[in-house]
Computed example of a mutant assay.
Amino acid sequence: MALLDNEKCVLPLSSIAELLSAKVRTLKMYEEKGLLPNKEQSVKKLYSISDVKVIAFVHYLASIKKINANGIKYILEMIENNMDEKNRNEFLDIVEGKLENISGQDVQDLESF
C-alpha cells in the first residue's frame, strides 16, 4: 500500500471549505486576492493536503486575527522567504494544532459578526 502523498492535488475548494467550516465564497475571495497557493488554470482547481494547511492559516489570519489581505501576503512572504521547508512545515503543524482548538462554530460566529 502506498503512503499518502501530501503534495498531490486532489481536493477541490468546496471540500476544503467544509473541512474548515468556512464558506466557499470566503475561500474564493482569498483566491482572488492571491492569498492561496497558485494552481495552474484548469477547469477545476485542486489543492493538496499541504495546501490545506496554508489555506487554514490564511483563513485563521483573516477571520480570527482580522488581518487584511496585504498583511496576510506579507506574513506568507516572510514565512516563505525566511524559513526552510522543514521549519515551515513544523510551524504550519503548530498552527494546525492551535486551529483544532477553535471550533467551527466560533469561526462561523465571527464570520457572521
Rank of each mutant, 00 (worst) to 15 (best):
K33V: 00
V95D: 02
G104Q: 03
K23S: 10
M83T: 08
T26F: 15
S63R: 15
F113L: 14
V95T: 06
K66S: 09
Q108C: 04
V95S: 07
Y47K: 03
L110E: 12
G97W: 10
V54R: 12
M29W: 13
N6K: 15
I55Y: 07
V10T: 13
A17T: 04
E90T: 01
L27R: 01
N89Y: 11
Y47G: 01
E31F: 08
A62Q: 03
N82A: 06
N89G: 05
R88N: 06
I79A: 06
Y74P: 00
R88F: 05
L99E: 12
L13M: 12
E77N: 15
N89R: 15
E18C: 01
N38G: 00
E77P: 02
D84E: 13
V58Q: 03
I16D: 00
E111A: 09
L11M: 12
Y47M: 06
G97E: 13
M29C: 03
L36I: 10
V24S: 06
G34D: 03
I72Y: 02
A62N: 13
K98S: 03
S21L: 06
F113G: 11
E40C: 00
L13W: 02
K39S: 02
Y60A: 05
V10K: 13
K33C: 00
L4G: 08
I16Y: 01
S112L: 15
S103C: 06
V24R: 15
L13K: 04
V52R: 09
K53I: 00
E18T: 10
I64M: 12
I102A: 05
K66Q: 14
N87G: 02
I64D: 08
R88V: 02
E90N: 07
M78W: 06
L92Y: 05
Y60P: 01
V58N: 06
I64E: 10
L61M: 14
Y60S: 05
I75T: 07
Q108T: 07
A17H: 09
N82G: 13
E32H: 15
D106G: 00
I16E: 00
S14W: 07
N89T: 13
Q41G: 02
L19K: 14
A62S: 14
D84F: 11
S15K: 15
F57V: 01
D106Y: 09
V107D: 04
D106H: 11
N68I: 11
F57M: 06
P12I: 04
I64C: 08
M78T: 08
